[in-house]
Nucleic acid binder design. Structure first.
Lengths: 243, 243
DNA sequence: GTGGTTCAATGGTCCAACCAATTTCTGCAC
DNA sequence: GTGCAGAAATTGGTTGGACCATTGAACCAC
């Protein structure tokens, strides 16, 4: 028998402030870029200290929801709603090889699932949109001798979106930021990412053919090539890193 | 050529405090559960206001790195290092049926991958630990007529940990919070979760047998049963929800 | 030992003031 | 009127000090 006794909480000022603020945002239909009331006004209206307001806003700022500009005001960076769910992820030592491999393992899991779902659920228009991104990417790949990371990313995003589940895009987008630093400094591997190129079209083909398992398989192959590149880069690096 | 010119920052008190604190943690070799210096002491030592210290700690608290206990002190919840990378995710609207199904799709992708990796990488001790959790859960299931959500969760956590990639646990733990609300109010489905019960042992068997594909397959079956339960619950709910 | 009581330590909140960056207003030159 | 420099107001950032609420340990009576 689990007589559930949730711990009572006599104090939750910060959360109360944030809840009120989320309500305000919805009430006023504020979107990204919208300006929040001043800290002083919030403090007065909510009958709390300005200090408490600041702690609450610091929370939102840390979550990337708002941006504070001294002398100007506090602005929304994203859409906020009262029923948001936060999952702050912390990657220890995210700069090294191990951290990258770990994010790749997550990406492998999500990418495969997203591709499969996409093959099931994508509408005709979405499939056409994905193919457009693919064409753009292939064109960029040809004309710029392999430098197509931006277009590459847009292709994948289109697939995530067509999966019908926005969580895929959100999670992978967060990790993409981390990865992006490496595309700039490809670890000494000159043709980083080249090997993955052909699989973009094979993934698309399986999606267009409504073949979930095929799409999943091709996605796995793509990630595998990236992992190989990464390992090669790590091997190169190890020759230099003698400290 | 990227001549790197980091923007000068006349004000970055909070970050400076956190950097100093991260250094302190490493210096003192503080692990999870470790106790940080008092806010007053930090303020004095770092020559900043206690308020500034609090804002910095609020950031870490929001990131889930520390826990503040009034009257007691501030404690580390996870390992922190100076080179951590944060990616806070906020998911909009996760409270309804659709949101739950979406988190389940993420969980399906990650659970399968984690089980497979676990079958490859888990050590003997870790496998023994998983089996212990499994035994506890099965015992709880028998004696409490199916109410074993807490033990169930611990089993899965053990699997995630043994996958060798802490990101799995972090991501799914965040989503678990959301799910937890439903275990309390099982949507009118009296035996919510019962169907998934036998698959816990089959997953473990495949892991112990070092069979990644088998483990993945069993994990997928488990998630499928949860999805079915959820759909049944939604169907029940739809009969009532006539507004 | 058990169960209260006291008391110091610690996080939580509040206030009032000032600093620093930004924006807005003002007034002068043209 | 226009344009622009400087003043003034606005706003987030920081400080110091005070007090409240909770915790935990020491202490005491029984």
């Amino acid at each position: 028998m689990t007589d559930f006794l949730p711990p009572i909480q006599t104090t939750a000022r910060d959360d109360a402030v944030l809840k009120a603020l989320a309500g305000f945002v919805r009430q006023e239909a504020l979107g990204p870029g919208g300006k929040l009331p001043t800290e002083r006004i919030l403090a007065e209206r909510l009958k709390v200290s300005r200090n408490t307001v600041r702690e609450a806003l610091t929370r939102w700022e840390g979550l990337g929801l708002v941006e504070r500009r001294q002398g100007s005001g506090t602005y929304l960076k994203t859409a906020v709603s009262p029923d948001m769910l936060h999952m702050p992820l912390t990657l220890a030592g995210g700069n090294d090889f191990t951290g990258l491999m770990r994010t790749l393992e997550i990406r492998r899991a999500l990418e495969a699932e997203a591709a499969a779902l996409c093959a099931i659920r994508a509408g005709k228009a979405e499939i056409a949109g994905i193919e457009r991104k693919l064409d753009i990417m292939e064109e960029a790949f040809r004309t710029r001798a392999g430098m197509s990371s931006e277009e590459d990313w847009e292709f994948h995003q289109a697939v995530y979106r067509a999966s019908g589940n926005p969580l895929f895009e959100q999670i992978i987008a967060a990790m993409h930021e981390l990865f992006h630093r490496f595309w700039e400094h490809p670890l000494g591997v000159r043709d980083f990412g080249h090997a993955s190129f052909p699989y973009h079209r094979t993934i698309f083909d399986r999606i267009a053919a409504r073949d979930p398992d095929g799409a999943r398989a091709e996605a796995l192959k793509l990630i595998a090539t990236v992992e190989d590149d990464l390992k090669r880069g790590a091997a190169n690096l190890k020759l230099l890193d003698r400290k």
